[in-house]
């Protein structure tokens, strides 16, 4: 028996919005420790890794490990039926081919049950090596979304360069060139407005704009985003999900031949 209750169903709605542009389907691996998902996008350029810890749920029970293969467009249709303030409970029997999403209004006067068929998906989990990154940057997630959206107008790629002085995003194309520089903030009223840089070595890497724009769909999950970079390895874009977990996107760099 698997059962997971979340008072704020909006969290799962936002998680789904954050992954459904990159992935058509994915396996939600449920265990005693929580729910995890790892999947590459169709072109195998990026990888999504989601972790929702069991202790972050309002109620969580998972007697046996369960892999739920889910069509994300179908799940999205169901999650749209939930109000933001509804309480969500996901339920599945052991070895089930169905998962039930139950939504309850706060006053418990309306209860909705949606059953969704599960799929058998080929699972290929990749081992992600522990890495000490040369640069770790934290910045407001809305700022990051804005920057990648603005620079996408100039070209398909964005160069992200990090030095002690700051972080620079650059793009160029037929209409011209664009550069956006952010310095580390010295004094902000709110932590979520801060730009912080931890740098061991300066790094400059090139990435495809369209994936960064897809990652930015996670913006509503967290006021801050963390970018981790080292030379010639994938960028990590991480959004914390309240007290329950995180979503990490790994993006393979563009490299000169």
């Amino acid at each position: 028996m698997f059962e997971a209750r979340l008072v704020q169903s909006s969290i799962l709605k936002k998680v789904l919005e954050a992954i459904k542009e990159l992935l058509n389907e994915a396996t939600f691996d449920c265990s005693d420790s929580g729910i995890q998902l790892q999947a590459m996008d169709n072109s195998h350029v990026s990888l999504v890794s989601l972790n929702l810890r069991s202790d972050g749920f309002d109620k969580y029970r998972c007697d046996r490990n369960l892999s739920m293969g889910i069509n994300l467009a179908s799940m999205s249709k169901i999650m749209k039926c939930a109000g933001n303030d509804d309480v969500l409970t996901m339920k599945a029997q052991d070895n089930a081919d169905l998962v039930t999403f139950m939504f309850e209004s706060q006053n418990q006067e309306k209860v909705m049950d949606y059953e969704m068929k599960l799929m058998n998906l080929d699972q290929e989990h990749l081992g992600i090596p522990e890495t000490d990154y040369s640069c770790v940057i934290k910045l407001p997630s809305q700022e990051f979304a804005r920057i990648v959206r603005d620079l996408s107008q100039f070209g398909e790629s964005v160069v992200i360069s990090c030095t002690k002085e700051g972080i620079k995003f650059s793009a160029g194309g037929d209409i011209g060139n664009a550069n956006i520089k952010l310095a580390q903030t010295s004094n902000v009223d709110k932590d979520e407005d801060a730009v912080t840089i931890e740098m061991q070595e300066p790094v400059s890497l090139t990435f495809a704009c369209r994936y960064l724009n897809s990652f930015a769909k996670a913006t509503p999950l967290s006021p801050q985003v963390q970018l981790s970079m080292s030379a010639d390895v994938p960028l990590v874009v991480e959004y914390k999900i309240g007290d329950i977990g995180h979503i990490r996107y790994y993006l393979a760099p563009k490299i000169e031949d």
Binding site: H125, T206, P234, K254
Partner: peptide, 14 residues
Amino acid sequence: DPKQTKISKFFTSP
């Protein structure tokens, strides 16, 4: 122009 690499080039299959 730099070429797009695949994520599986960096991460190992078990």
